[in-house]
């Protein structure tokens, strides 16, 4: 597991797994999209629009997962002085921002036919919007500091402070009475979703994870190279 904290070991492992990840992401995406568009049933209330879920839910999960990973690596970077944590922070933030944006856009496309409006100010939507802005601030901070040592640590501190938002996003549907429906899939109880919809959802989630992983590997490798040559 050393490759999770050591740049040179990470490079080796990344070279090894990059192609399999890329290929499996293509395969999973084609299977998932096929399921999502043709093989899964319509919802009896929502009709065909339920298919937006296969993009919306995985991107939302990944937006949160990316931030959680960044939080863990910030702790690693600040507390245990592992510089690889800062590399991950810089590399992964734009990916999380894109996933959040996808989640917001697909959500509002889904909301227009279902709720009759593109956007409502309920707790879940607001907190995800804040998550998006936090991602943007992280990216801007990465761009606007000149001194690399200050920049990476300040960004890590900001990531840690901003991680307060994470549980708010997750539990906003339970804490407040929102228009957004509560989670249908959870570990503790039996999921309240039919297997015919569950399978494409899981396939799509793995496809998203693989795509995210492939981009992340590329970005982390460039970040390592640019640090070695002291470009930034």
């Amino acid at each position: 597991m050393k490759f999770l904290v050591n740049p040179s070991k990470f490079n080796k492992v990344a070279d090894y797994i990059f192609l399999p990840v890329l290929i499996s992401s293509i395969i999973l995406f084609s299977i998932g999209l096929m399921f999502a568009f043709y093989l899964s049933p319509d919802d009896y209330q929502q009709g065909s629009t339920v298919r937006i879920m296969y993009v919306h839910v995985p991107s939302a999960w990944l937006a949160l997962l990316t931030y959680a990973i960044m939080t863990l690596y910030s702790i690693a970077g600040l507390a245990f002085k592992i510089p690889f944590g800062f590399i991950i922070n810089t590399a992964v933030a734009p990916i999380g921002a894109v996933f959040t944006l996808m989640c917001i856009i697909s959500g509002s496309l889904w909301g227009k036919p279902m709720w009759g409006t593109w956007w409502v100010w309920d707790a879940r939507l607001t907190s995800v919007a804040i998550l998006f802005i936090i991602y943007l601030i992280i990216i801007f901070m990465n761009l606007s500091f000149e001194n690399r040592i200050v920049r990476e640590k300040v960004v890590a501190i900001f990531v840690l402070v901003g991680s307060i938002n994470l549980p708010i996003v997750k539990f906003s549907v339970d804490w407040w009475n929102t228009l957004h429906q509560p989670a249908t899939i959870s570990k503790l109880s039996k999921p309240s979703i039919d297997p015919s919809m569950m399978i494409p959802l899981i396939v799509m989630t793995f496809a998203f994870i693989m795509v995210g992983l492939a981009i992340a590997i590329l970005r982390i490798k460039t970040e390592i190279i640019s640090r070695k040559s002291n470009l930034s």
């Binding site: 601030i137 801007f140 901070m141 761009l143 606007s144 500091f145 000149e146 001194n147 200050v150 920049r151 300040v154 501190i157 900001f158």
Partner: peptide, 12 residues
């Protein structure tokens, strides 16, 4: 305090 060394973008 985060933005002490940030000369370019103080509005952040």
């Amino acid at each position: 305090s985060m933005n002490l060394m940030n000369q370019r973008n103080f509005l952040l």
